[in-house]
């Protein structure tokens, strides 16, 4: 197998006496969806923050496309090809759907220092943004203010903004959160296709989605990966059952 697109090696991060991520090594290979599951407080958010650049690990490293990006900023990692969606929609609520998507194409272009020409009049920026909106089915709402979108539409826009970056790897923090059954199903179908473009590290509570999508699952408990494997392996693992489901195996 070729080198992983995204990998962490022995990541460790402690807050005082609490070790939030304890020696975590995971990887994400081309074409796969690797799901991270675990109970609340297992350290999923801390792990994501270290992968995306919001938090610096105490030790260990993060590699993107074979390059050590541990000391790179969030911006540098995004430029290197890491696309992220947030658990709680982080969108410019006063701006329109299209403007939010254009922010993504602007980031992808790497040329924000233009003060004269109108952003909405820039064809390159606009085409890229509209293509992404089209893919998530938000084209009709392009001129709607983001603040008046429904929760589900905001989740779609989150994904669209990440798409404009044409990333080499996605990190998605609970993309299904708050979506109804129908919305989850649609997004599940979409992510299923998306993995062929770029692999997805998926943190998700919605077990139906995880079981339907994941090529591999890693189970995180108290900051440690207690098991990594295919859906079937994880399902039948006694350790996982005991730790995650709280059963005495």
């Amino acid at each position: 197998m070729s080198d992983p697109i995204l990998a962490t090696h022995n990541l460790r991060k402690a807050f005082g006496a609490l070790t939030a991520t304890d020696d975590i090594s995971i990887d994400l290979n081309e074409g796969e969806i690797h799901a991270i599951i675990g109970p609340n407080g297992a350290g999923k958010s801390t792990l994501i923050a270290q992968i995306c650049g919001g938090l610096r690990p105490d030790s260990g490293s993060v590699h993107l496309l074979g390059r050590d990006v541990t000391s790179d900023s969030t911006q540098a990692r995004a430029q290197a090809g890491l696309g992220r969606t947030f658990q709680i929609s982080a969108l410019a609520m006063e701006d329109t759907v299209l403007e939010n998507a254009i922010l993504g194409s602007l980031g992808a272009s790497g040329r924000p220092w233009r003060f004269w020409q109108a952003a909405l009049g820039d064809r390159t920026l606009r085409e890229r943004a509209e293509a992404a909106l089209e893919r998530v089915g938000l084209s009709d709402l392009r001129d709607t203010r983001c603040g008046s979108l429904s929760h589900g539409q905001r989740r779609q826009l989150e994904v669209a903004v990440a798409l404009t970056l044409e990333p080499k790897a996605f990190v998605m923090d609970e993309p299904m959160a708050g979506l109804g059954a129908e919305g989850s199903k649609l997004l599940t179908g979409f992510l299923d296709q998306l993995r062929t473009e770029a692999p997805i590290l998926l943190v998700e509570h919605d077990m139906d989605a995880v079981l339907a999508l994941a090529d591999r699952i890693s189970v995180l408990v108290y900051g440690k990966v207690i098991a990594t494997g295919t859906v079937d392996e994880i399902r039948s693992s006694p350790e996982v059952r005991s730790a995650y489901l709280g059963e005495d195996a």
Partner: peptide, 13 residues
């Protein structure tokens, strides 16, 4: 102004 975290994750400072 509105979402600095978003701006960072699209690769801008």
């Amino acid at each position: 102004r509105q979402v600095p975290a978003r701006v960072e994750t699209v690769g801008l400072n």
